[in-house]
């Protein structure tokens, strides 16, 4: 059984998730329905949005994020990829900086614009 702390509200229910062959068979300990889907995902493959900054040629750092959540286990690989690039100005908000970060199929995008 995997124990998952719910993040939906300050109660922070500790939910138990039973799995068999990578599939969820039962969720228990939840005080309401809001955290159940989160618990199922956490037990099988926790996902996170990663935010960071990248280097900019001749400029201050640029804030970036993954366009959608990536598997938690890939966070440090994602950070290495982000640290490995240097971008050129100008940058538009939402511009794709890495197409597919560490094989997740998810892009890394700029979260702010930077002019020349």
């Amino acid at each position: 059984m995997t124990v998952v702390t719910c993040i939906a509200c300050p109660v922070g229910c500790r939910m138990g998730v039973e799995t068999a062959d990578g599939a969820v068979t039962a969720v228990s300990g939840h005080g309401c329905k809001r955290g159940v889907e989160y618990a199922r995902q956490e037990a099988v493959c926790p996902m996170r949005i990663v935010t960071a900054v990248v280097r900019v040629r001749g400029g201050m750092p640029l804030s970036v994020r993954t366009a959608s959540p990536i598997p938690k286990k890939d966070i440090f690989a994602c950070m290495s990829a982000i640290e490995g690039i240097v971008v050129n100005k100008p940058v538009t908000m939402g511009q794709i900086l890495i197409e597919d970060v560490c094989g997740s199929g998810v892009a890394v995008i700029a979260t702010k614009a930077m002019n020349e």
Binding site: I49, T51, A52, V53, S63, R65, M93, T111, K112, A113
Partner: peptide, 22 residues
């Protein structure tokens, strides 16, 4: 505040601080 979690109530989206401000 480059982390995500802004705008869930107002925009029904999960934005970073710079995106919310922009």
């Amino acid at each position: 505040c480059i982390h995500n979690g802004f705008g869930l109530h107002r925009f029904k989206e999960e934005l970073t601080g710079p995106e919310y401000a922009q």
